[in-house]
């Protein structure tokens, strides 16, 4: 009896202000969609960091003098540099690559462009220490310590390039989350407003309910559930929207970056994984807004 009564009240309530209900659902959906987008970027950055972790190196390029005369790093300053690199904390491995090996590597990388290889001379390639770090965050230390040392031409941190990419992605994430927040505020006000209108249009019923001694929960529950139902529908719309957005827009625009492995692939599974979060946030916020509105603005 109780539940069927409450739910029939909810359905009539949602149907009665259908325009408000739709507005409420759409605003909630957009807000959740942006939140979901932000969370997806976070996932992507995490994956990327995991992908590149361990692959990143710091390259210590040696001067022309060392590159030309010291093929196996047996004399100073090369051997000294190697020892101090190896004894620096956080360094995993140090690999010396002399000019010839470096040139071979260069040829391998640019195999597809024979003109470039033809133009290049081994003299242009410096001998290099390839330093792998236990923690890529420590690259700064190597750069600071070894730049300008005798025999060192420059120190190259591959992480720097990646940092710029991360900055862009983090910017996208912050933007999405900020918009989500604004949109959430709009959703919040709409939910609150809808409940007030809903309570007003049903004031006769509510008046009678109070009069015959219905408990507070019994009078308020339909309004609360109304808000939560709208929230859930909003969450469904946002998840469906994200799935479609990924399938038809994201994959098309960023497809090349995904397939080349520069950006880690986002699967629909990733979208489904954040769906419970969106549902949870939506239910929590709509219920809370509903409850506070009923307490503060609606005398039931």
């Amino acid at each position: 009896m109780r539940t069927s009564f409450v739910f029939s009240e909810v359905v009539t309530g949602l149907r009665r202000n259908v325009t408000m209900t739709i507005a409420m659902i759409l605003t909630t959906a957009i807000s959740l969609g942006l939140l979901g987008g932000g969370l997806l970027v976070v996932r992507m950055v995490d994956k990327m960091q995991a992908n590149y972790q361990g692959k990143l190196e710091v390259a210590v390029l040696l001067t022309n003098d060392v590159s030309a005369n010291d093929q196996d790093c047996s004399s100073q300053p090369c051997s000294g540099l190697r020892t101090s690199l190896e004894t620096t904390s956080g360094v995993e491995t140090v690999v010396f690559e002399n000019r010839d090996k470096g040139f071979e590597r260069f040829k391998r990388i640019f195999e597809a462009q024979p003109e470039l290889v033809k133009l290049a001379r081994p003299e242009a390639i410096p001998a290099t220490f390839r330093v792998k770090l236990e923690d890529p965050e420590r690259a700064d230390v190597i750069v600071r310590e070894f730049s300008g040392k005798a025999g060192v031409k420059s120190v190259d941190d591959q992480g720097k390039f990646l940092d710029r990419l991360f900055n862009v992605l983090n910017g996208v994430r912050d933007g999405a989350l900020f918009l989500a927040l604004l949109q959430a505020l709009a959703a919040l006000l709409l939910i609150s407003n809808t409940i007030q209108v809903s309570a007003y249009t049903r004031r006769t019923e509510v008046g009678i309910m109070r009069l015959v001694g219905a408990t507070r929960w019994y009078t308020q529950l339909p309004f609360l559930i109304e808000a939560v139902v709208a929230g859930i529908i909003g969450a469904i719309v946002s998840v469906v929207g994200l799935i479609l957005f990924k399938a038809f827009i994201l994959d098309r625009v960023l497809g090349d970056l995904f397939s080349s492995g520069i950006l880690p692939t986002l699967s629909q599974l990733d979208v489904l994984l954040i769906a419970p979060i969106l549902f949870g946030v939506s239910v929590l916020i709509s219920a809370l807004t509903g409850y506070v509105t009923l307490r503060l603005y609606v005398r039931l």
Binding site: M1, I208, L211, V212
Partner: peptide, 29 residues
């Protein structure tokens, strides 16, 4: 409680109006 203006629910029948008072206090069907 009874009032001058009756205060009935216009979209409910006579029986439903009376039943409403019991439904909302959780009486069994």
């Amino acid at each position: 409680c009874v009032f001058q203006d009756f205060r009935l629910l216009s979209n409910k029948t006579v029986a439903e109006n009376v039943a409403f008072a019991l439904e909302v206090i959780g009486k069994p069907k």
